[in-house]
Nucleic acid binder design. Structure first.
Length: 482
RNA sequence: GCGAAAGUAGCUCAUUUGGUAGAGCACGACCUUGCCAAGGUCGGGGUGGCCGGUUCGAGCCCGGUCUUUCGCUCCA
């Protein structure tokens, strides 16, 4: 499967040691699957957000952004189907301590029966599931004599609901308050603002609304460093299209998004599409863009053709029309297309997963040993446009006015991109430190700089260096950032 | 959630059968130096993940717990 050796532990440790990502609440023993971004991680994250935002919003005149609240009206999650579908009834076997999803347990049992009998049981189960009749489900399991595959006993707990949405109270007095949820996806904030944006922005179909924001899912098992966290950040775009055109737009966005990934400098063979066979209740087509992580191919981004499910549901539950009036002429009838509920193509990429992808791709251990001496370096080969630090400015020594020249250069560059100044330690050591942070360029100010204004520029990937005029440094870095 | 492994300084790790914790690197100051992990001197930093038990005495033995990694499981 994966062509990588699993260097995830090395990446995690590097992230912590060099100030990219820390375990949350570490001095209190940590909090499972929660991480904080440190001084360089936050720069990396911000650069990736900016890159996505530019490519989606600035580069498409028919896409605009919004920033909706995490708290939303609880009915939104009924309309979206999350209250009913985003939870799984579970049951535990008391002897083996093994936990099962009730539907999986029953389906597994049915596999060994003849088809007719099995179909009846499944039908009964679906009825009970639809009614949230947990006692009924428990009785069904007991009556059928379904045993745990590990302990081989029928010693079951009651059926319990594990909702993947976090809930909290709105209002300071719990008794008077409503239960509200932390949003499990950012998409609904876009759907409920669909008409606000369409009308105030005078948007014509096809058009898109983009959003970057946090979402929360109470995963039973969250694991894999920042791959699956309970609090995570999504970058989503919902693209509203005329019904009947969704297939071509789905293909369009599949292609467009894959181009974005390849523009990160990641080779094609590290990606693959994974088409969903079993579609979610809202979709008529769906696929994932998967990246070859250290632990194998996993989803980074999802592209879903969500039909008119969400807007129709909101129209139903809110009793507000979610229609769009299309003035364009339908060639088939010679008349305007008129009122309809648009179809939606969604692109949804996990920001934290993208960061893990970029880190996995960039993390490189190099052996630089020669016959005389053993040597190695760890270098993060980030694409220049997302590197946390673009340029390190290093006076060869503090004295003789070299630091002053370096500070001047620092000042003139800092308003354009993020620079790092360092005068401690030997130049070789400073280069290695910048490699570990993924800084693509280092310039060194020496005595010759005082004479002719030239500096040594050193390139991260090749470790080569050349002399250029210090007035050209800013230009060189800025050009390379595109 | 189940199973396995791990947790000692910022990092990588020692401390072989229980006897009041050590190295290298890193960090800070000063001196020497100056283009790919420099040398010297001095210095800061650990109630051994946490809690409890056994013991005269626990980093080491026992129990519990937390966290991480790996494999299952889960992932509208």
């Amino acid at each position: 499967m994966s062509t990588n050796q699993n260097n995830l532990p090395a990446i995690i440790s590097h992230c912590k040691e060099y100030g990219f990502i820390f375990p949350s609440s570490e001095i209190y023993d940590g909090l499972s699957a929660v991480y904080d971004y440190g001084q360089w991680g936050v720069e990396l994250k911000k650069n990736i957000k900016d890159l996505w935002w530019k490519s989606m919003v600035y580069m498409h005149e028919n896409i605009v952004g919004i920033d909706s609240a995490i708290f939303m009206h609880p009915t939104i999650w009924k309309a979206s189907g999350h209250v009913d579908n985003f939870s799984d009834p579970m049951i535990d076997n008391l002897d083996s301590k093994k936990r099962y999803r009730v539907d999986h347990l029953i389906e597994g049992f049915v596999e060994n029966l003849d088809a007719e009998k099995g179909a009846q049981i499944i039908a009964d189960m679906e009825l009970l599931l639809a009614k949230d009749d947990f006692d009924g489900l428990k009785n069904m399991i007991v009556n059928l004599g379904i045993k745990c595959s590990v302990s081989n006993t029928c010693n079951w707990t009651n059926v319990r609901q594990f909702n993947l949405m976090f809930s909290t109270q709105l209002g300071s007095v719990a008794e008077e308050s409503d239960t509200i949820y932390l949003r499990p996806e950012t998409a609904q904030g876009i759907f409920v603002n669909f008409l606000n944006v369409q009308k105030t922005g005078r948007m014509k179909i096809p058009f898109g609304i983009a959003q970057i924001g946090k979402a929360f899912r109470n995963e039973i098992v969250a694991r894999g460093f920042i791959f699956r966290m309970r609090e995570f950040e999504q970058m989503e775009m919902q693209f509203f299209v005329r019904p009947g055109t969704q297939k071509e737009w789905y293909e369009h966005w599949k292609e467009t998004r894959m181009k974005w990934h390849l523009a990160l400098g990641i080779p094609q063979e590290k990606y693959r599409f994974h088409d969903h066979v079993k579609l979610a209740h809202y979709a008529d087509a769906a696929c994932d863009i998967e990246y070859d992580f250290p632990m194998g191919f996993k989803e980074v981004e999802g592209i879903h053709s969500r039909t008119d499910f969400d807007l129709t549901q909101h129209q139903l539950y809110s009793k507000k029309k979610m229609q769009y009036f299309d003035n364009d002429i339908d060639e088939a009838t010679g008349k305007a297309f008129g009122n309809y509920i648009p179809y939606v193509i969604e692109t949804s990429i996990g920001l934290d997963r993208t960061i893990l992808m970029v880190l996995s791709e960039a993390y490189t251990e190099e052996d630089l040993s020669t016959a005389e001496k053993q040597d190695s370096r760890v270098v993060l080969k980030f694409p220049i446009k997302i590197a946390p630090i673009k340029l390190a400015i290093l006076p060869l020594m503090k004295k003789d006015g070299l630091a002053e020249i370096a500070k001047e250069l620092m000042q003139s560059c800092s308003e354009h991109f993020f620079c790092f100044y360092e005068e401690k330690d030997s130049i070789g050591k400073r280069y290695r430190r910048m490699d570990a942070l993924g800084t693509p360029f280092c310039v060194t100010i020496d005595h010759q700089t005082k004479e002719d204004g030239t500096v040594t520029i050193r390139y991260r990937n090749s470790m080569e260096q050349e002399r250029i005029h210090m007035n050209d440094v800013k230009e060189l870095v800025m050009k390379s950032m595109h």
